[in-house]
């Protein structure tokens, strides 16, 4: 049997091209670094270009669809009012003293600390005077016998000055 095996083994099988296979083996043995790097980069850029193209197409399509339209909208806007500012030269100057300041009006609100009993009494007399006339005035204090009697005209003048009204309004007749 061994002799027959040797005879059989002596037959030479046909083969392909040795050099071609060696070349391909050498080519295959070289492992390129980052084999998928550039294909991946090109794929990414291709996807970006495709996305931008689609976006551009949609923008152009939507621009064609849009029709210009004017819409008026009414809105109420509340703006805090600011007091008009006048130039300093235009600002009116208050008089230093007025008759009404000397005898202030009872309807003007004042500081409660400034109110004294005399003012309250004065306001009470003022109201009664406007309501009932001059008869509502209290009795004038008696003057000393030594003093000269006060004439009615003086009283009328003083009263009109105190109250800030004309003597006609007080209903006082000239005697």
């Amino acid at each position: 049997m061994q002799e027959f095996e040797k005879k059989l083994q002596a037959l030479v099988p046909t083969t392909g091209q040795r050099d071609q296979v060696l070349f391909l083996m050498g080519q295959a043995s070289v492992k390129p670094v980052n084999r998928w790097l550039w294909p991946s980069v090109s794929l990414v850029f291709a996807m970006i270009a495709l996305g931008l193209g689609i976006a551009l197409y949609w923008v152009s399509v939507r621009e064609k669809e849009v029709v210009p339209q004017i819409i008026y909208v009414d809105r109420i806007i509340s703006v805090p009012a600011t007091p008009p500012t006048l130039p300093p030269s235009v600002t009116p100057q208050q008089p230093e003293s007025t008759p009404t300041e000397k005898y202030p009006s009872p309807w003007v609100k004042r500081d409660p600390q400034d109110v004294n009993p005399m003012t309250i009494r004065y306001q009470q007399i003022y109201r009664e005077l406007l309501r009932f006339g001059i008869d509502a005035l209290p009795q004038a204090p008696l003057y000393e016998s030594t003093a000269s009697p006060v004439s009615s005209s003086v009283i009328r003048q003083d009263l009109s000055e105190w109250l800030g009204v004309s003597p006609k309004e007080l209903g006082i007749r000239k005697q």
Binding site: T15, G16, Q17, Q20, V21, L24, M25, G26, Q27, A28, S29, K31
Partner: peptide
């Protein structure tokens, strides 16, 4: 021959 060539190339890979 093609099969053997592919096998040797695959061995190198």
């Amino acid at each position: 021959e093609d099969v053997v060539q592919e096998v040797f190339v695959s061995l190198c890979q």
